[in-house]
Simulated scan of single mutants.
Amino acid sequence: MKILMVSIFAPHFFNWTEQLEDSGHEIYWLDVFDSGAEVDQISFVHQITGWRYRWNYPGRYFIKKNFTWLNRFLNIFNERKLQNILEKKIEEIKPDAVHSFVMYLGTAPILDVMKKHPNLKWIYSSWGSDLYYYRHLKDFHKDMQQTFPYIDYMFADCKRDHVIAQENGFKGEFLGVFPGGGGFDLQGLEPFMLDADKRDVLLIKGYQGKHGKSIEVLKAIEELQLKLKNYKIIIFGADKETKEHVESSKINEWPNLKCYGKIERNEVLRLMGRSRIYIGNSTSDGLPNTLLEAIVMGAFPIQSNPGGATAEIIKDGMNGMLIQNPTNSSEIKEILESILNGDADIDKGVKYNFEYLRTALDREKVKERVLEKYRIVEKNIN
């Protein structure tokens, strides 16, 4: 089967697509915003890049950075449209299916092209906040409602998004819930994992931004200094807002606290493997990849629950704790304090995650299920 992927340049997409290597399918990728770079991780894929600009004239980056109005004007003549390139590639490649990722970036924008090819199977994958957040924005919601009736198949990272899709016109076949970036190499992660009695890290995801609420977590720990004295508190992925909060608050003086900006994924996994407790907090997400990383690495998760997505795998108080109001630092403080007081059996929760969740996240098992779903699509091609 020839599959034309339409996606932004993103690690989630590369990890997902890597599952299709040696699958027998012929894979093409149209880079939605045209980063101009080919990706070694998916070297087996025919990568369509370098399509966006007619002329890469001298000084283009300088003008783009310093003269926004001029850049917009020049792009009227210099920038090719994604829809035109997609139409051209469909005619050239003659794919059996188009698989688009993320509604508002890679899916709704190609609706008019896909309408012209009603016999071409259309697969869609939702990630994170793709549907949950953007359905509240009028224009995006309208795009969603116009696009879903034409989609034949759907992958999601949580059941919640399938419900949202159905509420907005999706009548195709739901192919199931899968980690957005595929599974994990569990055997390869073993060297990064410490035994429970050697774990001393409280790990906090430091993203604030549009959806993140890391600052509420930091406010929650401010009054728990004595109870956290035996923990190494590590904040990772801290953005500017989070760093500024740390620097201006009393936790900045804590000798057992460190704050890091963006770090490599392998380093995140190493930190998870040292962590006793992990906290992730946001107002909008699917099943966060960092939550799954905490589960496979043996950290006890405290995670926000937008739209009930986290509750699909976390039983509150048993194999993790759910933050129901991510903007309420008092609630987060109470949850963490209850764990520090021993109200939740961390070891029992981690054991449950290992027995019932971790094994299902094995990369080869996930890959096998994913390829089975693509075979369903292949069988239904006219």
Rank of each mutant, 00 (worst) to 15 (best):
A10H: 15
A10W: 14
Q19Y: 06
L20S: 12
E21K: 15
S23K: 12
I27Y: 04
A37N: 14
D40Q: 14
F44I: 10
H46K: 14
Q47I: 11
I48C: 01
T49E: 06
R52P: 01
Y53W: 14
Y53G: 04
N56C: 06
N56W: 04
Y61M: 09
F67Q: 02
T68G: 13
L70Y: 03
F77N: 00
N78F: 03
L82P: 01
L82N: 00
Q83I: 08
L86K: 04
E87C: 08
I93A: 15
D96L: 01
H99W: 05
F101K: 04
V102A: 11
T107S: 13
I110E: 06
V113G: 02
V113I: 11
K116A: 07
H117Q: 12
P118Y: 05
N119G: 10
L120I: 01
L120R: 03
I123L: 04
Y124P: 00
S126K: 05
G128N: 09
L137V: 14
Q146K: 15
Y153F: 11
M154T: 09
A156L: 01
C158N: 15
K159H: 11
K159W: 01
D161F: 04
Q166S: 13
N168V: 12
G172N: 03
F174H: 10
L175H: 00
F178G: 03
P179D: 05
G180A: 02
G181V: 07
L186W: 01
Q187F: 04
L194P: 08
D200N: 15
D200C: 07
V201Y: 09
G209F: 12
H211M: 07
G212Q: 04
K213V: 00
L218Y: 01
A220S: 12
K229M: 13
N230V: 05
N230G: 10
I235E: 00
F236L: 10
G237W: 02
A238L: 03
V246E: 02
S248I: 02
S248T: 14
S248L: 09
N252S: 14
N252P: 12
P255E: 09
C259D: 07
Y260M: 07
G261W: 11
I263R: 11
V268N: 11
G273S: 12
G273N: 06
R274Y: 12
I279R: 02
G280C: 02
N281H: 08
D285A: 04
D285W: 10
L287S: 08
L287D: 04
P288F: 06
N289D: 07
F300I: 06
Q303V: 13
G307H: 06
E312Q: 08
N325R: 13
N325S: 14
I335K: 07
E337W: 10
L340Y: 11
L340Q: 13
G342K: 08
D343R: 08
D343H: 13
D345I: 09
D345W: 08
D345M: 06
D345N: 15
K348C: 09
Y352W: 14
N353M: 08
E355Q: 12
E355D: 15
R358M: 06
A360Q: 14
R363D: 10
V366L: 08
V370M: 10
E372P: 05
I381G: 10
N382A: 02
